[in-house]
């Protein structure tokens, strides 16, 4: 079970800082971005009334998430944030699914990825809040219901980042650990495929959806 603790890293010393890069995560993230760009290119290459398979899938995503975003935000606000929500879901879905292929690892298995995405959602949500309400009204909300609740409100906002990123990380990491341990224990062919189907496909989809929905909800809480 040594694979669990083994991480392939690049380290670099820049101006007195010792920087460590998780090479696997970076390579896999870039791979997924490449795959998504290729998917986008194929889906939009020949749009027509009789769509090609890529276009069908893309339309499915776009339609589902357009409706979801429109429900949560109002129409013109949804136009701004819909591309973010839809591409976030597609990125996460592919991230969680890619682990089922041999020699591929989920980038979401690394806390750095999920924490980065969580922080991105946090900053976007607060930027949206300041932009719609103005800074005074935005800042005033932290002093509700009474002024000394301010620290608790701030902690509450920061806790959202922690919870959203640890949820995704914990589920994907847990799934891959379970698959690894069970594969070591049974040496069989029968059980791991079912586990891959459950953790890789099912839990991966559910958690990608949960992450996306929560980002959307955090934005909608800030703008309302």
């Amino acid at each position: 079970m040594e694979e669990l603790t083994k991480v392939w890293t690049w380290s670099l010393d820049v101006a007195g800082f010792h920087l460590v890069f998780n090479a696997t995560t970076i390579v896999m993230t870039l791979t997924i971005m490449g795959l998504l760009i290729a998917f986008g290119w194929f889906a939009t290459r020949q749009t027509g009334l009789v769509p090609n398979p890529f276009q069908v899938v893309a339309e499915l995503f776009v339609e589902t998430f357009w409706n979801l975003t429109k429900d949560a935000l109002d129409e013109d606000m949804a136009k701004t944030y819909f591309p973010l929500i839809c591409s976030l879901f597609m990125f996460l879905l592919l991230c969680n699914w890619i682990g089922i292929f041999p020699y591929m690892e989920e980038p979401t298995k690394d806390l750095n990825t999920t924490l980065g995405l969580g922080l991105m959602g946090f900053f976007i949500a607060h930027y949206a809040g300041i932009k719609t309400k103005g800074f005074a009204a935005y800042a005033k909300e932290y002093f509700q219901p009474v002024f000394f609740m301010m620290p608790l409100n701030v902690i509450g906002e920061l806790a959202k980042v922690i919870s959203i990123s640890f949820r995704l990380y914990g589920n994907i990491m847990g799934g891959s650990i379970i698959i690894l341990v069970v594969s070591h224990l049974v040496y069989g062919l029968l059980i791991p495929p079912f586990l891959y189907a459950f953790f890789g496909l099912f839990v991966g989809t559910v958690q990608a959806f949960v992450f996306t929905m929560l980002t959307l909800v955090y934005i909608s809480v800030q703008v309302k």
Partner: peptide, 23 residues
Amino acid sequence: GLLTRTMLVGQAVSESTGIYSLV
């Protein structure tokens, strides 16, 4: 659809304490 979304958001909020335990 609406109910599933609401359920997921509600569950995510109730899970926060579990995530604090994890942290």
